[in-house]
Design a protein around this nucleic acid. Sequence first.
DNA 1: CAGTATCCGAAACGATACTG
DNA 2: CAGTATCGTTTCGGATACTG
Lengths: 130, 130
Amino acid sequence: MTSLSDAIHSGALRGNVLASACPSRDILKHVTSRWGVLVLIALQGGTKRFAELRRMVGGVSDRMLAQTLQTLEEDGFVRRHDHGEVPPRVDYTLTPMGEEVAEHVRALADWIEGNLPRILKPENSRAETA
Amino acid sequence: MTSLSDAIHSGALRGNVLASACPSRDILKHVTSRWGVLVLIALQGGTKRFAELRRMVGGVSDRMLAQTLQTLEEDGFVRRHDHGEVPPRVDYTLTPMGEEVAEHVRALADWIEGNLPRILKPENSRAETA
DNA sequence: CAGTATCCGAAACGATACTG
DNA sequence: CAGTATCGTTTCGGATACTG
């Protein structure tokens, strides 16, 4: 058959993420970072303000939230809108591109959530915490 | 309409990944870790030996490869088979569950690779390295 | 409210050396 | 070949204090 999907799945036409030099690794790193994942998912609900995100994403600090948002903005996944008011009012939205990655990230997270029982079944001695 | 998909997409029925206590976060961490992602993708090509993986996954060290494989094995995503020969011969395969996560992980990585031009377009001053 | 600056401990990671 | 042990570095990330 030697179809395209065969080739892709066999790895023949797979991109070069596996190669060290690939710039995809940087983007991947941002998107799969601890807070990156959660912020992208949180923003799928629509535009959110800083404090809203901080409340949604459990455990995130101001510092990390700001940093994560900046990185995602630089990558073009998030648009920041400062209303220039006092007190400050800033909100964050996924760009069209951001919606696309977020969709993939969410699919992954959803799969994990949905299969947690299967994963956590003590078929193996899962003793670790991290 | 208030359909299920509406509810899901709006976040109403989204799981609790966003909550700090959610155990999904640990699994997510393993799967989206720097080397976890790449190992899962590499193993999609079929069963691989340790040295093969080390060659495929550019830049990975023995230490990190071993560690990553152990974590993925504990999570039930990878099955390790030691042939008990001398010299040692050990190979790694995705479990059915592993194939499922790997599919999502690969979809994400593929999207990034495929959209790199769009992402890297210097609409914004991307000056950073990491 | 929406951040930034600074400090510091914890965790990830790489290099090297060693083993069955 | 397939790892482990140890060490040192670098990065991550939390706490606290401060600002427009």
